[in-house]
């Protein structure tokens, strides 16, 4: 058995790939649900119902998708240039704590119209900074950024844990380690009354559209793809490799930092170490499911959020551990990898 590269990929196949992958992941996870003694179809029906069955649940799913779009974009932009940023989780936390710090300590009195953009910028800058360190180590010492970004996730969460336990601790939180809240003026406007859905979703979708344009229609987009596909060839063709990677890192880290900022300013209002249930890691899956396409990221984030929100509801009715959502999401990454492979190769005996 050998694999042969396909000369031509039909558009229909490329679009069908993530659907096939998700179908396969759901089928595999269905086996696990069945083993746990639950009716599989009912379980999936309950997931859908819990994620979209009411106004409340639908807005909740969209709220959950918001940071996933941003971390998904962060991964997609970086992976396109073969910059393996696995540190979105840490960058998210650093963005979040920077926002809480700035708003509670010295920007709190500014009106929202000034304060909000300023805070978003600071959050993005914080995420950026945390990714520039591993990039510098890669360029200076040839250290694989996968490991350094992963390790920095732990450092970042510990740093946040330390700050909300000491200098940024909220004295009104009955001893719980949580940061002082951001000012009321810093909270993002709601998109819908009586819901948690906030402007962050709009910001995330607009950024996805902007990135789609940048990736496909600008010189920088072309250079970053070239840097990923063939670094040596790119240099030969006159692409400034280091400069391109630095910009990619700024965008990627910035998006992840923004995810944290938006989550604090849109939903929580303060930071705890439970702010993110792995948004950074799920962002990797989101990016891969979208085949690194920024617009696809929005849809993939919606799917992932549906699984997480839906599984919570399903878990309450059927007693299946809600970890099934994590299993489905992880499996869909693996099935997507295989599915993409078979759009590029065919089996030849």
């Amino acid at each position: 058995m050998r694999f042969e590269r396909r000369e031509h990929r039909s558009i229909a196949l490329v679009i069908a790939t993530p659907l096939i992958a998700i179908g396969a992941a759901l089928a595999l996870a269905g086996v696990l649900t069945a083993v746990a003694g639950a009716p599989v179809l009912e379980a999936y029906w309950l997931i859908l119902k819990s994620a979209f069955g009411s106004r409340l649940s639908a807005t909740e799913t969209l709220t959950r998708a918001t940071p996933l779009i941003l971390t998904g974009l962060a991964a997609a932009v970086a992976f396109r240039a073969r910059l393996w940023n696995i540190g979105a989780e840490g960058q998210l936390y650093l963005g979040a704590i920077t926002v809480a710090w700035a708003s509670s300590q010295f920007l709190g009195d500014l009106p929202g119209l000034v304060q909000i953009p300023l805070l978003l910028l600071l959050g993005a800058l914080a995420g950026m900074t945390l990714l520039l360190v591993p990039l510098w180590m890669r360029l200076r010492f040839t250290v694989d950024e996968v490991v350094t970004t992963l390790l920095l996730n732990f450092v970042a969460v510990l740093l946040v844990s330390m700050l909300i336990d000491t200098v940024l601790k909220d004295p009104m939180a009955f001893g719980w380690p949580q940061s002082q809240p951001v000012a009321d003026a810093a909270m993002l406007p709601k998109l819908l009354a009586r819901s948690r859905l906030h402007l962050g979703l709009g910001i995330a979708v607009v950024l996805a559209i902007v990135l789609a344009f940048v990736q496909s229609r600008t010189v920088f987009g072309m250079q970053s793809r070239a840097a990923g596909l063939n670094p040596e060839g790119a240099v030969f063709a006159g692409v400034p490799l280091k400069g391109t990677l630095v910009i990619v890192a700024c965008i990627s880290g910035g998006l992840a930092g923004l995810a944290g900022a938006v989550e604090v300013m849109g939903v929580q209002g303060y930071v705890t170490t439970e702010l993110s249930p792995g948004f950074g890691y799920s962002g990797i899956v989101v990016a891969m499911l979208a085949n690194l396409n920024p617009l696809g990221v929005v849809l993939a984030a919606l799917f992932t959020a549906t699984m997480f929100v839906g599984a919570d509801g399903m878990s309450r009715s059927l007693g299946i551990p809600s970890y099934i959502a994590d299993v489905i999401v992880a499996l869909s990454l693996l099935t997507m990898l295989v599915a993409v492979f078979f759009t590029q190769y065919r089996i030849r005996r």
């Binding site: 551990p321 970890y323 992880a330």
Partner: peptide
């Protein structure tokens, strides 16, 4: 593999 193995463990 890491995401799958760890979520599968918790499940």
């Amino acid at each position: 593999v890491t995401l799958f193995a760890s979520s599968f463990s918790y499940y």
